[in-house]
């Protein structure tokens, strides 16, 4: 059996419509939940001020310890902690430059593209060996 007859026989139209609907609805729900995640976390942080008087945690209780929370530190999405991951993000940018290039040219390109912390990142890439000296103050990109 071929053609529309085969599709009808296998209930193809219904399956495809249902499939697309489920993919969309589950990802829409997911997107709504994720979009509210940071609001919920903010609410959680402010819970003491939001709770009515009397229901707040006991003042005599042990003082809250300041857990090492890296929320205090900037965590830009384009700035992962691992230098190899940073190098992957910088790869397309550096591919645009004519090799060998100066660090100044790289810094300018990064700054123009609003890469966060370009100066620090260029230094880290250099320390990690992704930027290899090619003489005359120029560098080449060593990223697989």
């Amino acid at each position: 059996m071929y053609g529309l007859e085969a599709i009808n026989d296998a209930h193809g139209w219904q399956m495809a419509a249902l499939g697309v609907s489920i993919v969309f609805s589950s990802l829409i729900v997911l997107s709504i939940v994720i979009s509210q995640l940071h609001n919920l976390l903010e609410l959680w942080e402010k819970r003491k001020t939001l709770l009515p008087a009397g229901t707040a945690p006991d003042a005599d209780a042990a003082p809250p310890t300041v857990a090492p929370d890296d929320d205090l530190l900037p965590h830009p999405p384009v700035c992962p902690t691992e230098i190899a991951a940073v190098a992957t993000l910088w790869d397309p940018l550096i591919q645009q430059l004519d090799a060998p290039f100066t660090l100044q040219a790289l810094y300018k390109a990064a700054d123009a593209n609003r890469f966060p912390h370009p100066h620090l990142t260029v230094n880290r890439l250099r320390d990690a060996g992704f930027l290899a000296p090619a003489g005359d103050g120029r560098f080449t990109w060593k990223h697989a």
């Binding site: 589950s26 729900v29 997911l30 939940v33 994720i34 995640l37 940071h38 890296d70 900037p74 965590h75």
Partner: peptide, 18 residues
């Protein structure tokens, strides 16, 4: 920017929903 807590909660929320 995303916080560390968001990134930790993300896989847990995704797996709960999906």
């Amino acid at each position: 920017e995303t916080s560390k807590r968001e990134r930790i909660l993300f896989p847990i929320v995704v797996i709960l929903v999906t």
